[in-house]
Amino acid sequence: MTEELITLNHGSGGRAMARLIEEIFIHHFNADSNNTELAKKNDAARLNVQTSHIVTTIDAHVISPLFFPGGDIGSLAVHGTINDLSMAGARPLALTAAFILEEGFKISTLKSLVKSMALAAKEAGVNIVSGDTKVVEKGKGDGVFITTSGVGLCDHDVSLGAEQIKVGDKIILSGSIGDHGIAVMSAREGLQFDTALLSDSCALNDLVDNMMQHFKHAIHCMRDPTRGGIASALNELSEQADKGFRIYEAAIPLKESVRAACELLGLDPAYIANEGKLVCFVAEEQAEALLAKMRKHPHGRDAAIIGEVLAEPGVQLQTTLGTRRRLEMLSGEALPRIC
C-alpha cells in the first residue's frame, strides 16, 4: 500500500481538503464528545459565556523532532495554550487550531498528531472547537506547524500578574526542571543519547483549579517556565514586577537523569525548557498550606518552595556552597560544550 501524502490539493479548498477536515480533524476532535460547535463546521465557533472575564491566548508550535519521548508537537500545542490560560488564573473554555502542512507530509503522521491532540484536549476537559488548514509547497515548511489559540474564563475577583508580586512572597515551583528540554534533546538528530526520561508536557489547568479553589487571593502571580527555563521566566517577572528574587539552588527539584545529562553536556538546567511546570508567587503566610495542596496533585507532587521576593531588583541564586551570584536570563542559545 502506498503511503498517503499531503498534496497542494489538500489546501486548495476543494474536495480533498473537505475530506481531510472531515476524516481527520472533525473525526478526532469531535469523537465521543459534546463538541457541538465543531460539528457545525462553521468558520467560527460560538461560545456561551456567563459573567466572567474572558482570557485569550495564542501559541505557535514548531519543534524538531515532531515526536519526542513523552509527547509530540500535537500534545504540546494543546498543553501550551491551556497552560497559558491557566497561568492567568482562567479556566480554559475552548481551543482553536491552525495547521500549516508541507506538501509531501505523511497523512498517517498527521493522523497520529491529531489523535494525540484530541487525547490531550480530552484529558484536560477542553474542546477544540474550530480550525484551519493550509498547505505549502515542499521545501517551504518543516512538515507541520501547529498554532493553537485558546479562550478561558476567569472570576471577576481574580487578578494575577507580575505587578501583584509583593516583597516577602514565597516562590513555589511545581516540580522538577529541565525534563522537557533534555527529553527533546535526547531525540534530536546528532545528539542522541539513551535516557528513560520523558518530557513533562502536560496540561496544568486541573492543578491550577485545585490551587485557586482555596488560595485565589493568596496567589499573586503564576508563570510556566517554558523556553529559556526558570532562569529566564524569573528574570522576566523580576523586571516586570520591579522586585528581586532570591532562589536557593539546593531547593530546586531536579531529576538525577536531567542533572546527569546537563553535567555531561555542560548545560545549566535553570535554562532548559519545561512544558508542564509552573512557578507561583504566594503570600508568605499561605505558602506552606498551598504547597501541601499542590503536592496532593499528580502534577505538583514534587513541588517545593524555592525562594522569596526581595525589594532589590534582580534574580540571585544562593549556591549549594552558600555563595550568591546573579541568575541571568538566557542569552544566545544553550549549546553543548566542546570539551
Binding site: E312, G314, Q316, R324, R325, R326, E328, S331
Partner: peptide, 11 residues
C-alpha cells in the same frame, strides 16, 4: 562574567 558576575549581589 556576563552570566555570573556582571553586577554584584548583596549579601
Amino acid at each position: 562574567y556576563w552570566h555570573y558576575a556582571r553586577s554584584a549581589v548583596s549579601h
